[in-house]
Nucleic acid binder design. Structure first.
Lengths: 217, 217
DNA sequence: TAGATTGTTAATCGATTAACAATC
DNA sequence: TAGATTGTTAATCGATTAACAATC
């Protein structure tokens, strides 16, 4: 039952590591380095060279034995693979302090994300501009999503409002939701939901910390 | 060569999921539910019941066949396991918009993190208060870290300053670094480094999105 | 009691790591 | 040429899932 368009999905752990490689490679460009080997990247990031090689392979890059990879080519390959060579229009929902901070990330535009408007349920925020982005009442999501072809919704509302706002985004035709709330969202199969899970990261930190403290006691 | 204090480390993926369970359980408390089964949690979060059971087991909780787990007990067990039943003093470094947003997260105090001061290299920010937290010049890290027993450093500086500030935190005797920058940090074995990796999350989102767009074309 | 659920052992799956031939 | 490095196949490792006896 071999399906022709299977296209061998890249392993998620590999995709997650690609931005780290990209960050390192950009430093190399600044320092004038033009080629780099997996061995070198691996030792820099405390990984194994085989892992780096496999990760880079998912982007389709081809290296040269004995030389390694061309830094510029590698940057292009990763950037293209991640879809960071073009931008998608995005809405921010929830213009609180986290939301405002996200609007201020100028770097997002170089990483596929272009905020075209922000929304907030608080009427006092309507009409304000945050980092150059206009804040609008929630209800205007629908008309504006139509007008601009907005693909991404960034969710930075309080957890209890998350599902309701997610529903609105889906209804507005958004293709992907970047969820900064701790809520687990329900959405149709066709809509991509990516959870940031800040508290998962904090959980790792604090559980290891309290483990250490127990040990040294 | 069996080492008595091996203590069978909990799998990281399990630890990452615990906060999600906790979030759900707290909603149950509000709605008055007092017991819950793995099957129920699993269907709510689109996981398998075996996975939920294994995850909960790492906290040491014991359930009752036919009944499930007591919601209150389960909340206590997860909270204790993650070290969220007490707080550690924390420094924020980098009082930009992201840093300010983090200082505003009141919820962190319920999750083991208590900001006692913020630091920024910009002298114009010194003396300001952000969400009740005083902003101090970077150099004062050392004296203040001594004074309060500060365990956690939260890094929200620009990537190019990350390593330098991390070094300062280590020198100041910090036990764990929560790294919001995309930089890969070097630190002694004994210091816990937990990376938030916002761009890894964004990479998953945009790569899946551009994959979808290619398919529908 | 019957049936749902726990706790645990075994099977499966996927990612990481090791090994090695091909190459410039 | 010799040696470092790539690309790829095989072995290992750990996490997820399945199976099932014990239990209230």
């Amino acid at each position: 039952m071999s399906n022709g368009k299977k296209s061998r999905q890249a392993p998620l752990p590999s995709v997650r590591r690609l931005p780290t490689y990209l960050h390192l490679l950009k430093k190399y460009v600044e320092s004038g380095r033009s080629a780099v080997s997996c061995t070198h990247i691996a030792s820099e990031l405390s990984l194994t060279n085989t892992q780096v090689r496999k990760d880079l392979a998912v982007t389709g890059i081809i290296g040269k034995p004995k030389v390694g990879y061309d830094v510029g080519e590698l940057i292009s390959a990763i950037t293209a693979f991640l879809g960071w060579n073009s931008t998608s229009e995005a809405f921010l929902v929830g213009a609180g302090s986290l939301g405002s901070a996200l609007l201020g990330y100028q770097d997002f535009r170089q990483h596929g994300l272009n905020f075209v408007a922000a929304f907030d349920s608080d009427p006092r925020k309507s009409g304000q501009r945050i980092h150059g982005c206009e804040v609008l009442p929630l209800e205007e999501i629908y008309s504006l999503a139509d007008q601009r072809r907005v693909r991404i919704g960034v969710l930075a509302v309080p957890a209890r409002a998350a599902q309701e706002v997610a529903n609105m985004l889906v209804l507005a035709g958004i293709k992907a939701i970047w969820n900064f709330t701790p809520a687990t969202l329900e959405a149709p199969e066709s809509v991509i939901v990516e959870d940031v899970r800040l508290y998962s990261s904090l959980a790792i930190l604090t559980s290891r910390l309290s483990e250490n403290l127990r040990e040294t006691k």
